[in-house]
Design a protein around this nucleic acid. Structure first.
Lengths: 344, 344
DNA sequence: TCATTTTATTTACGCGCGTAAAAAAGTTAT
DNA sequence: ATAACTTTTTTACGCGCGTAAATAAAATGA
């Protein structure tokens, strides 16, 4: 294939394929902008010499960088890993080069990523901010500079659009189910959760309970950071020891907390499940990839990964293709689907 | 801070800070290459104008791109998520800009990433190849073109170095423990595993069993791809139904398989554990982040994440700083640590 | 203080490509 | 075949920076 390795730039490549450099340049910007026969000649030459234009030279001169930044708060979390995977794929499909970053739970990292992204001059950015932990003004000013679509966790009035889950619906649906199938749940959450969805979920829980004429029962546990399973385990253990649950049905703010809490239940010798011989029912929210493999399998509300990521990319693309003219900042919330499994 | 937003390039920045462009350029290449007072003036000016040189113009002209590519086979796998996180941090510490890619289990993606990386002209690349699924010649030719250190899964004779775990030691240690604490294990693995470590682990198992004068018992389950928990669950269920385990101690090729297999055991009503009243003992390998939260908690061998990632980055950096003169391709294998938990 | 060394400036070119304008060549319709 | 259109070529400039060589200025040292 690469018979002649002597091609070092577009000039030489154009010469070797018997065309002028501007024509070749035009092709690389949009293969359909040249005549079909010309295009064929170039594509043949590409195979023959396997030439690729220098991306740095391209990006230096183009206003449209053809690159999209993707930022998630914690890539080791399979939830975000999965989201990132889908987002990447969709960007590639749309002809963009995704560039992936994880702030790893640190606002300092997040700011550094913003700097890097600014200097990359990307077409647009898909950003799942740290939330409460973020440097709010840093996020806001970044979104001013770069066309950004927020996802997963919302920051009011910031970014061109927000795509996420309808957290109020999540908890409402789950409360309804738990209530009907036995007993209304106590809500288990962190006192200072790293993810801003937590607040919406608590509010949703309270609202749902009150709609049913029930008294909300909330247990808040300590801990900081993103080691949510550990926090759920430690906090759950302490709470169980203190006998602080008013009911024997627990709805956790998210699946990772629930996964830790399940461990705490096991440690305390509690049998978790829906059946009559069980001591406690436990439910989560998110349908985390591992929630199918807990024991018992975790009842939860599934986030619509695919819809969220598809819509996020679509929104960003229409945004940047239409001269950034999204009249009004729109928020799209997707409903969750109840996944009944053995834990509740 | 950004009082004067009029600075658009290094020329203007140099003027605004009362210096010449070459001096400023020198500073950005190496802040210590200019006099302390000059450096201070530039650093003040940076804060005042928050100027950052155009990375595309920089990279076009420098041979040393100051960027390092990181490629993993599956980012949604928390194991690789964690490795990637540590690698990224270490690259940043060393003054490089890491660029993260996941081939998501597809050789096609992997090749595309190679192309992207080639055009990025990175200082070096840290690559965990897909292994068996990789286009072997694509991997080899890429490693010819770009200084690459392989990690996690080895490809013979390819790349400048390999850093990974001593898989033979892993299985040997585990077999020894399981043997001494009860009964030697049957080995559970995929018939066609996506990760090449699997082969080494099987061989290690066989060797270890024979060293103890025992007959190796291997159960291979079907399935393709990276949904290892599902594969472990489905295959495990079928195997249990067929009563195919010769012993009631099972060593899984990796933790994710084990996590799925645990679910299969629960579904079949088997009690997993070390105690006398348990039906079966299950162990894994890797110390996957979730193995502490299975029920029962998974006994496993811990990969030394930190040592592997630290060594991988170090090796790459010395490699590229010493004119790529690593005399001989070196392979570094780290031993695993036995983590005794409740499942075995 | 003057000679020596270190550091900064001036000047000038190159990197690989985008892109605009005008001219040339090729294509299609009548 | 001629006019009208489409596509390609020519020419030429610019992007923002690296970098080299010669020169000038500043710091150091005895």
């Amino acid at each position: 294939m690469s018979g002649n390795p002597k091609i070092r730039n577009m000039e030489q490549f154009a010469e070797a394929s018997g065309l002028s450099r501007p024509t070749v340049s035009k092709f690389f910007n949009d293969p359909d902008s040249v005549k079909a026969t010309t295009r064929q000649r170039i594509e043949d030459a590409i195979k023959r010499y396997d030439f690729r234009p220098n991306i740095y030279a391209i990006n230096q001169n183009r206003r449209l960088t053809k690159t999209i930044g993707i930022v998630v708060p914690y890539l080791s979390d399979p939830f975000f890993g999965e989201i990132a995977r889908v987002l990447e794929a969709k960007c590639v499909d749309a002809g963009y080069s995704p560039s992936l970053f994880s702030s790893n739970g640190s606002a300092e990292n997040e700011k550094q990523i913003f700097d890097t992204l600014r200097s990359m001059k990307p077409t647009g950015v898909l950003l799942a901010p740290l939330g409460r932990l973020s440097d709010q003004s840093a996020v806001a000013s970044f979104c001013e500079d770069v066309p950004t679509v927020l996802f997963d966790s919302n920051v009011e009035e910031v970014g061109r659009a927000f795509i996420g889950s309808d957290n109020a619906q999540f908890t409402a649906r789950m409360v309804e189910y738990l209530h009907q199938s036995g007993e209304p749940p106590t809500f288990l959450e962190m006192k200072t959760p790293p993810n801003p969805n937590a607040r919406k979920r608590r509010q949703g829980y309270i609202a749902a309970m009150e709609r049913h004429g029930l008294t909300p029962e909330i247990v808040q546990i300590g801990g900081e950071g993103w080691a949510l399973e550990d926090i759920g385990f430690e906090g759950g253990k302490r709470t169980l020891e203190a006998n602080a649950f008013k009911t024997s049905t627990v709805l956790c703010s998210n699946d990772r907390l629930a996964i830790g809490f399940l461990s705490a239940c096991h440690e305390k010798g509690l049998k978790v499940g829906l059946n009559g011989d069980a001591d406690i029912r436990v439910a989560g929210q998110d349908d985390h990839p591992f929630s199918r493999f807990t024991y018992p399998q975790l009842t939860t509300i599934a986030q619509d990964y695919d819809a969220i990521s598809r819509r996020a990319v679509d929104t960003l693309l229409t945004l940047v293709s239409s001269d950034n003219a999204l009249a009004v900042r729109e928020e799209t919330l997707f409903a969750g689907r109840l996944i009944k499994r053995a834990s509740a």
